[in-house]
């Protein structure tokens, strides 16, 4: 396996695709933006100050797919034959799920176009809703499936899984990307706890958040959350340092605080404001 965007000297180069045969290429990517339930309700009613949020985000996603080559340095400019961007409002998880599919007959894959469409649609949703909710987070931007091309077909559903399916939510988790091929849809349909890491702790762990299925917990409390994480990866042992503070649903908590599906558990170092 080699990185095709690096030449023999390790320098970035654009892959010459002139001699590749044209085949039908298709890719689907997904992502989601989490928001407060009140924001989601306003979005559903069309009550947000900037107008029709979903229509605007859809156009933004389609435009972005067409302009991917202007954003990602070594991407080719492609004449896409089809771009769709779809939204699903999830009231239980309080988020909007975004899916984008791109297709063309050509010589290069279209996964970057689908991922860009999802990213920009999510960013546009943020822009359209930020007047009422600045704490929204964009999560789990990922390739769901691709078809065609030499590297073959890919489907997230058939990718190898983990012993416990923690799902780092953020695209800000490159160090985790390798060992997290579990499906988000799986994590979404299962009752789960959202775990966040803040400030220094986020930097030491290399990622900001993850989703932990309740089924991975031996005990439904903070201690159980810590243990499940530590069993998954040794680096989470640092959550047991006595200086680390814990909040459950934004209220300070301790090891024996109970957790329920849908709860948000945050770990952070001692505070240093003022």
């Amino acid at each position: 396996m080699t990185l095709t965007h690096l030449n023999a000297r390790g320098e970035a180069h654009m892959v010459d695709v002139a001699d590749k045969q044209e085949t039908r290429r298709e890719a689907t990517a997904s992502g989601r933006i989490r928001m407060r339930p009140e924001t989601l309700a306003l979005l559903a009613e069309g009550g947000l100050p900037k107008g029709d949020v979903l229509a605007t985000a859809r156009i933004a996603g389609i435009q972005a797919a067409k302009r991917t080559h202007e954003l990602i340095p070594l991407c080719h400019a492609l004449a896409l034959s089809k771009v769709t961007v779809d939204f699903e409002l999830d009231e239980i998880e309080s988020c909007v799920d975004v899916t984008a599919t791109c297709r063309l007959n050509g010589r290069t894959g279209v996964e970057m176009e689908a991922l860009t469409a999802v990213s920009v649609a999510c960013l546009t949703l943020y822009d359209m809703c930020k007047a009422v909710d600045k704490a929204m987070t964009i999560d789990a931007v990922q390739l769901e499936a691709k078809r065609g091309g030499r590297s073959g077909d890919f489907s997230r559903d058939t990718a190898p899984g983990l012993s416990i399916p923690t799902t780092p939510d953020a695209a800000s988790a490159p160090t985790q990307a390798v060992d997290t091929k579990t499906t988000v849809s799986k994590a979404d349909s299962e009752p789960s706890i959202r775990v966040r890491f803040l400030a220094e702790l986020r930097e030491r762990l290399g990622h900001e958040s993850l989703t932990l299925p309740v089924s991975a917990l031996a005990e439904a409390d903070i201690q159980g959350v810590k243990r499940a994480l530590r069993d998954h990866q040794e680096q989470y042992a640092m959550l047991d340092e006595p200086r680390i503070l814990i909040a459950c649903n934004q209220t300070l908590a301790s090891d024996d605080t109970r957790v329920e599906p849908g709860d948000e558990v945050a770990f952070f170092p001692p505070v240093t404001g003022g």
């Binding site: 803040l198 400030a199 952070f268 505070v271 240093t272 404001g273 003022g274």
Partner: peptide
């Protein structure tokens, strides 16, 4: 109290 209880972090 702000310095010891409000979640802010300085880098």
């Amino acid at each position: 109290y702000l310095k010891t209880r409000a979640p802010f972090w300085k880098k």
